[in-house]
Nucleic acid binder design. Structure first.
Lengths: 214, 214
DNA sequence: GTCTATAGCCCGATAGAC
DNA sequence: GTCTATCGGGCTATAGAC
């Protein structure tokens, strides 16, 4: 891999792990295995790292948004695949949201994209739920699917932080991911046909394993 | 107010607003209206500020935890009062959770207290829901009240951040508070008797107004 | 109890050799 | 494309006058 990409990967990893402000450029250079001055050959300043990672994030999010329900018979599997992509995205780019106060304003590219990303994301959740309702798997008033979509987003978006905060011991990240998926499922599991609920819970284990490998 | 208390209030306000790492002691001293060196007379170092604020937080949280349902006929009003206290606490001490990576380890006092605080907090939610179920206001399986309590905690704890992130324009903090209360209500509103739902929504407006004044 | 002056450190970033 | 050497600046914290 090119040095520039190694820097970006390591920066994203460290920012997520320790917070943007807590990662010194010296530590980043050391982690990459290059001299600190070499960073400034590839990027003008620390802020430019955020801009570059943001571009990757937008690409990743737009790819995830394309995961729509296409086959009614497989909506549960498709939903599970979508959740996996969503969880990956959240874990891989969490510092972009979390540390905004730290690195300052979002890049212009992200500011322009954000409202669309959030709006589309809500619509994406609603679409999956709609298909579940239409195929008789989920019993939920169409009018209230929007609220359910918001609640699901929040649980998935902040679940990792929540379980970290409450300090429960977890054997692995995979186990925590599985836990927030299970938690989001409790939002509507009581209105889901039992076979669908079981299939989702089974799918979550696979997702958790896949995310852990990342 | 004593200088020491003015420092603590201003520090908590600035930390919440800008993040612990982004508040320089020079800026804090200026905001309080004292010389920077004077800070180090009252506190040994920046970290000591966190310890002191933590003690206030523990006191506040333990006070909030005492809000239990006592009168079955007034459980909705009591629940609303509890939510108000919870929202205040979250907004007044949010940096303690959010910026932990920034200021390092929690104080020993908080580390010892945290598991109890979270456990009691879940029990508190469950108790209110239990009374609603017992008095026929809420139709929910007793077994699944724990999940509902977790979901409610997450929505209330991270709702402010979520609505800030998605960048929706809000006329005021009070309006956002009202919005996260309404959002958490959608978790169980469809199983709540209509009169109770209406009373809660009305109570939220009062809460929002009260929090705004803080 | 509050102030001024300043020490000492670490950070992000630059210059220039190779 | 990568390195070493170093700078200016902002930060936390100390010393000591008042």
């Amino acid at each position: 891999m090119k040095t520039k990409d190694r820097i970006l990967n390591e920066a994203r990893r460290l920012f997520n792990e320790q917070g943007f402000g807590n990662v010194t450029t010296a530590a980043l250079a050391q982690a990459v295995g290059i001299a600190e001055g070499n960073l400034w050959y590839h990027f003008n300043n620390k802020r430019a790292l955020v801009e570059a990672i943001t571009l990757d994030f937008i690409k990743s999010a737009n790819g995830r948004l394309e995961l729509r329900p296409v086959d009614d018979d497989k909506v549960i599997d498709e939903y599970a695949a979508f959740l996996e992509a969503f969880a990956r995205e959240i874990t891989e780019y969490s510092f972009l949201y979390r540390d905004q106060a730290d690195y300052g304003e979002h890049s212009a590219a992200l500011l322009e994209e954000l409202p669309k990303l959030y709006g589309e994301s809500q619509r994406q959740f609603r679409e999956f739920f709609s298909v579940m309702v239409r195929t008789g798997l989920l019993d939920w008033p169409e009018k209230q699917l929007g609220d359910l979509a918001v609640n699901a987003s929040i649980i998935l978006r902040y679940g990792l932080e929540y379980f970290r905060e409450i300090g429960e011991e977890h054997p692995s990240t995979a186990e925590t991911i599985r836990q927030i998926f299970a938690q989001h499922l409790t939002l509507f599991e009581h209105r889901l046909v039992p076979t669908a609920a079981r299939r989702l819970r089974r799918a979550f284990s696979d997702i958790a394993a896949a995310v852990e490998g990342a």
